[in-house]
Amino acid sequence: MTQTAYILAVMAIGFAITFALRAVPFAALRPLRESRLVADLALWMPVGILAILTVTTLRSSLEADASRLLPAALATAVTVAVHLVGGRRTLLSVGAGTVTFVLLVNLL
């Protein structure tokens, strides 16, 4: 198998699996539209899934370099504070947190 064929095969497999994972649950959920369980899950899931994604992205950033624990903790605090005090303007909060982290990582 040439390198080009190999790369094209990876792309085809990647498309098929990823699209199926994204699409099949919608088809499977259709008969469950009236289900009370699905309604509960739709209501309860987002905050928990987002929290899990938050902690795991923080963790993988720390795994790359453990000395970033203090910068990450401070930048997280800045992000939360700016978001709650600054009227939940996402771009502002993300910008402030990221600038804090970049400065601390490069200056410390």
Binding site: T76, T90, T98
Partner: peptide, 29 residues
């Protein structure tokens, strides 16, 4: 630029805060 990837962490932090506006969300958390 070193550390720019923190933007993704910061985004998820703000989105979690936005999803958790009422006390009813605490059990899920």
């Amino acid at each position: 630029i070193e550390g720019l990837e923190f933007a993704l962490c910061a985004l998820f932090i703000t989105l979690t805060l936005d999803a958790c506006r009422s006390r009813k969300q605490v059990p899920s958390l």
